[in-house]
Amino acid sequence: MVPVANAPILEHVVESLAEVGVDQLVFVVGYRRQRIQTYFGDGDDWGVDIEYVVQEKQLGTGHAVLQAEDAVAGDFLVVNGDSLVDTSLVEALLSADGDAVAVTRSDQPTDYGVVDIEDGAVAGVEEKPRVYDAETETINAGVYRFDDAVFDAIHAADRMSLTDALVRRAAEGRVEAVRVEGWTDVSHLWDLVRVNSAAVDGDHDGADVHPTAYVADEVALGEDARVGPNATVLAGTTVGDNATVGAGAVVGNSVVFEDARVGPNAVVRDAVLASDSSVGPNATVEGGRADVVVDGNLYRNVLLGGVVGDYSTVAGGATLEPGTVLENDSRVGTGATASGRVGSGTEVRR
């Protein structure tokens, strides 16, 4: 589960929902669902009831929603677990009149479904249009209000696509397009760096900071996170539970997940260090902007020093060029330099 300011994104979502009285939640879970179940349980800690349904194969969002068919009745909301929604957004949908979808403006409309709106209602959706095809910058935020008739629409939809089901519902009747603020997509890793740095506060309780270390105010430290002698943790950084920043290391504007380790004198900036990953002594993630390719799309000039995937290792003295992404279980050997994308389970040697 991806953390922002030391709480999983999903937890921020649950809190927003609970705050405005949405207290019956159905989680559609699949990949690594055990972590989610272990974290949230029955939802008692958040004052909500959580029921789990399992999506065995990840066949898209419409398919995911279908899994909940037996678990919901009447009106319900559909919310993504990996983008942040605030309470005003949820309230706007709750007060809508029947079916509705949250729409918002985006600088990158080509990443999303662009919504064509007529008279406050959905008239059509263009999925990931090419730049010159995008008619507006109003995009589908992926937060919906439906009643259980939507399940029929999904069954009828092309490849069980939720967008297609949305268009069908809009053709059959009115689907209100609710303009919202307070939606933050975190689907790209550089989003995580940016969103995290905006969200962190000065929560240092429960961490173990050596008296000679410097920890800036806008830093969130998890339970039993360690900051060693003479280490520096700069603003915009989250250090997760039981994670370690070694002696003399410098970490800034980064998200360090639970159990991850930054070795002595390492430098880590604008980076994401995933669960139980490790950056060795004197290793460098210098930080800064780079062009990053994801799924064949080029994203220019994004602020991303680097990503170290779950259980991956950057060994002593190694360097990540800006924009480097190490997938899970990969390794950059002692003194080696990595750039671009390093596949899961592979090793970069000097």
């Binding site: 879970v29 179940q37 272990t38 949230f40 349980g41 029955d42 008692d44």
Partner: peptide
């Protein structure tokens, strides 16, 4: 926590506890 004594989506307490 009361939560600790509930299954929280798992089929068995044992599996829940293994994952805890």
């Amino acid at each position: 926590d009361v939560e600790a004594a509930e299954k929280g989506g798992y089929e068995h307490y044992m599996l829940k506890e293994i994952h805890e």
